[in-house]
């Protein structure tokens, strides 16, 4: 029983150590979702500047303090603003990020659909004139080729 307790204690200690020393992987996991504070558009986990190293250490410390990934990111956003994350937190900006492209896609589809709606009934007529135009086009091409050859 004693030994069991001792080993359990050891296990707990290990667990405690692990949480006090958040692993590099855990830090990267958070850093991947953030962006470098100084150089724009470089993800935090890939950035090698001193400021980024500092931030990663802060993430490690906050992880060790038992904070969740989201809580850590939120704390950075509060202090540094929306540009440290890849998706804006500000509700208006977030809506604009997501809604506008969707709107644009819907609009493009609508224009496409309108084009389809206008598939006129005049298919046969179109086909007839198509044939005529086709002949005309071939004739014109031949003519142009002849003119070119004579130059």
């Amino acid at each position: 029983m004693k030994r069991l307790l001792a080993s359990l204690g050891l296990l707990l200690l290990c667990a405690g150590l692990a949480s006090a020393q958040a692993s590099d992987n855990a830090v990267n996991q958070v850093a991947q979702r953030m962006y470098c504070p100084v150089c724009e558009n470089i993800p935090l986990d890939e950035c090698l500047t001193i400021a980024c190293q500092e931030w990663k250490e802060e993430i490690r410390a906050q992880l060790a303090a038992g904070k969740t990934e989201q809580a850590i990111i939120d704390s950075f956003v509060v202090r540094f603003g929306d540009h440290v994350v890849g998706v804006p937190v500000d509700p208006l900006l977030r809506a604009m990020t997501i809604v506008l492209p969707l709107l644009a896609t819907a609009l493009a589809l609508a224009v496409g659909a309108l084009t389809f709606r206008r598939f006129a009934a005049g298919e046969t007529q179109a086909a007839a004139s198509a044939d005529h135009e086709h002949r005309e086009a071939t004739y014109r091409q031949r003519l142009e080729a002849d003119v070119r050859a004579r130059r």
């Binding site: 504070p37 100084v38 400021a51 500092e54 931030w55 250490e57 802060e58 410390a61 540094f80």
Partner: peptide, 8 residues
């Protein structure tokens, strides 16, 4: 500026 935590 750009401090990772106010404690630092």
């Amino acid at each position: 500026m750009l401090e990772s935590s106010p404690a630092k």
